[in-house]
Design a protein around this nucleic acid. Structure first.
Lengths: 160, 160
DNA sequence: CTAGAAGTTGAACAAATGTTGAAGTCAAGG
DNA sequence: CCTTGACTTCAACATTTGTTCAACTTCTAG
């Protein structure tokens, strides 16, 4: 994914009950607008799951296309892979059992996350206009006595 | 910086015209609520600058305290070190020449950035409620025909 | 002057998010 | 049978933002 992908992605309805997984890594990558290496990466980190053919190749369900799209949205929100895995951890392990409600639940959580992150940024803006006197420097010309306002308030935890 | 730093940080007015830099790495680190290693890191990446003593030790101006605080705010906004360096690149190379207006200019740019990032997140939320039919799965019970709505629209450029 | 605190550089490590390449396997077509 | 394309695994590399360590040097106070 080097170039910007328009990604309108109107996935048609999955017609068959989809009991057997049929999509290859490349199929899923193309459908999700990501690289095959990313598909493998996501599987390795437990975001998606596949069955294997006799020849040890991965096969994905069509519903995994939805999962990949959700992963991409979650990344736009700013979640890490670990966080995304957590958000998705209560989806039915058997992907064929996933229902609309499962997606709605995940979606609501992502919405909450997005709102929280918007709030954190809004707090930064408020700090800009609220807190005076973080940076005071002696004015070069005596007519300008204003000061720059900024302050940090430990919004998100930082533990490297 | 492992534990949460309250960081009220009401830097008093810099009394002296501050022509000679006097703060050591540790001084600046303490004032800015960061580790000495971070101070060196920022200097190495061109966010701050120092003069050296005869013995090759760094000495910073008091105004660098403000710069560090601005860096921290910029990080809260989500800027990378490279982006922060760019935002600060038009500050007077001679730190003693920095004026309030220089800070105001940087601040305004950071505000714009923050608003843009808020907008990007808001777009995600809008996509949630606007776009239908990203994930359609065959309903298990025929009564529920709703669909999950999501779509990505390439908000921020990705160039690794 | 001398000891100890604090500074110096450079390299290595860490976690996150993948990409790329090597070497090998599998299925299909001619 | 052989080639070709797509798949496999594993390891190495790349980037970001620092931290930590080793081996020295400098500064400061007694």
């Amino acid at each position: 994914m080097t170039s910007a992908t328009p990604a309108v992605l109107t996935t048609g309805p999955v017609s068959k009950p989809d009991s057997e997984p049929t999509l290859t890594v490349s199929d899923l990558a193309r459908a999700g607008g990501i690289a095959p290496s990313a598909v493998r990466f996501y599987e390795k980190h437990g975001l998606i799951a596949s069955k294997r053919t006799r020849g040890n190749q991965r096969r994905f369900h069509h519903v995994d296309e939805c999962l990949v799209k959700i992963i991409r949205v979650a990344q736009r929100v700013g979640l890490s892979v670990a966080e995304i895995r957590e958000q998705m951890s209560d989806l039915p392990q058997d992907r064929a059992d996933i229902t609309i409600d499962d997606f709605l639940r995940v979606r609501h959580r992502l919405e909450r996350e997005a709102r929280q992150r918007i709030q954190a940024l809004t707090d930064v803006l408020n700090d800009f206009t609220t807190d005076q006197k973080l940076c005071e420097i002696p004015p070069k010309n005596p007519t300008d006595t204003r000061n720059v306002a900024t302050t940090q308030r430990a919004v998100g935890p930082r533990k490297p």
